[in-house]
Simulated scan of single mutants.
Amino acid sequence: MFRHMLGKTLGLFGYTIQYGCIAHCAFEYIGEFVVCSGPSMEPTIVNHDVVFSERMSRHLFKIEKGDIVIAKSPFDPQMNICKRVIGLEGDKICTSSPSDLFKTHTYVPMGHVWLEGDNLRNSTDSRNYGPIPYALIRGRVCWKLWPLHSFGTMSETPMKRIIKAQRDSDSD
């Protein structure tokens, strides 16, 4: 009787470990569901929206300007941030406000990205903490899942303020 119970317990423990490993790999390498909070990405993403963040783009270095990403906060590694990629390594970013007389620019260093919230008046982003290392990016937001009336792929930046560089083949 004891051997039978021990065998069942160890079998259940083994299945729990296996399924736990599968779940860990799925969330680490495929994607995760994220409940967003805060006003920095309004109107694109509002408080309590649920999004799906895929991880493959990050691993394949396929993050592009205009993508919305989930990243570790440079201030608090326990907290994640949701921001839009405005600049990639080597890009020149205007860091002054439109009303400033003199424009200041920052070049995004190698291995870094420039992130900003869509709600520029209420967002703590790269304008405050500078470019962030690419390694802090956890994933690219590709779907809004909740609320159901806004289910679908993520829209373009509301102010259309991202200028994508022409490819060499386009300029010929």
Rank of each mutant, 00 (worst) to 15 (best):
R58F: 02
F75P: 01
I81N: 05
F102V: 03
D170V: 00
H4P: 02
L145S: 05
Q18I: 14
M1Q: 11
K103Q: 15
D170G: 09
I86A: 12
V85R: 15
K103S: 08
H105M: 03
R167N: 09
A71Q: 06
G87W: 12
S73Q: 06
R127Q: 13
V113G: 10
T95Q: 12
N122E: 14
D67P: 04
V113E: 13
Q166F: 00
E42R: 06
T9K: 14
L10I: 10
P74M: 09
R161P: 00
M41R: 09
F52A: 04
C21N: 04
S169D: 11
S53T: 09
L12D: 10
R58M: 08
I63A: 01
I30F: 15
F75C: 12
K83F: 00
L115I: 07
D170W: 13
E116T: 08
D118E: 10
W146E: 03
N122A: 09
S155E: 10
I137S: 05
Y107C: 00
S155L: 06
D67V: 05
K65W: 09
W143Q: 02
S169A: 06
A165T: 01
I162K: 10
G111I: 04
K160L: 09
G20P: 03
D49R: 10
I132V: 13
E54H: 04
K62C: 06
I86R: 15
P39E: 07
L101N: 12
I162H: 09
L120A: 11
A26S: 11
M159V: 03
A23C: 03
D170M: 12
L6Y: 08
R121I: 02
I70C: 04
L12C: 09
G7V: 10
P98W: 14
Y129P: 01
F151N: 12
S57K: 00
I162T: 06
P74Q: 09
K160D: 11
W114C: 07
I17M: 14
L12P: 02
V35N: 11
R58I: 06
T95F: 13
D49E: 13
F102M: 04
A71G: 07
G90F: 07
V46Y: 06
G87H: 12
A71V: 01
E28W: 11
M79R: 15
E32I: 02
H149N: 11
E32L: 08
T153S: 10
Y15Q: 15
D91I: 09
D168V: 05
P109C: 13
S150H: 06
C82A: 10
H105E: 12
L10G: 03
K164S: 06
E32S: 09
I45D: 04
D76W: 00
W143N: 05
K92I: 09
L12G: 08
S99D: 14
F27G: 00
K83I: 01
R121D: 05
W114R: 10
C21Q: 08
N119F: 05
Y134N: 04
E156A: 11
V113M: 15
S150Q: 13
D91E: 08
S37I: 02
P131L: 05
G117H: 13
T153R: 12
D76P: 01
R161Q: 09
S169I: 07
E156W: 00
E156H: 07
G130T: 05
P43C: 11
P133A: 07
V35E: 08
S97L: 15
D172G: 01
T104G: 01
P98E: 13
S171F: 10
N47R: 05
K8F: 13
G11E: 15
Y15P: 01
L10H: 06
C142K: 07
F33L: 08
R138Y: 00
V69R: 14
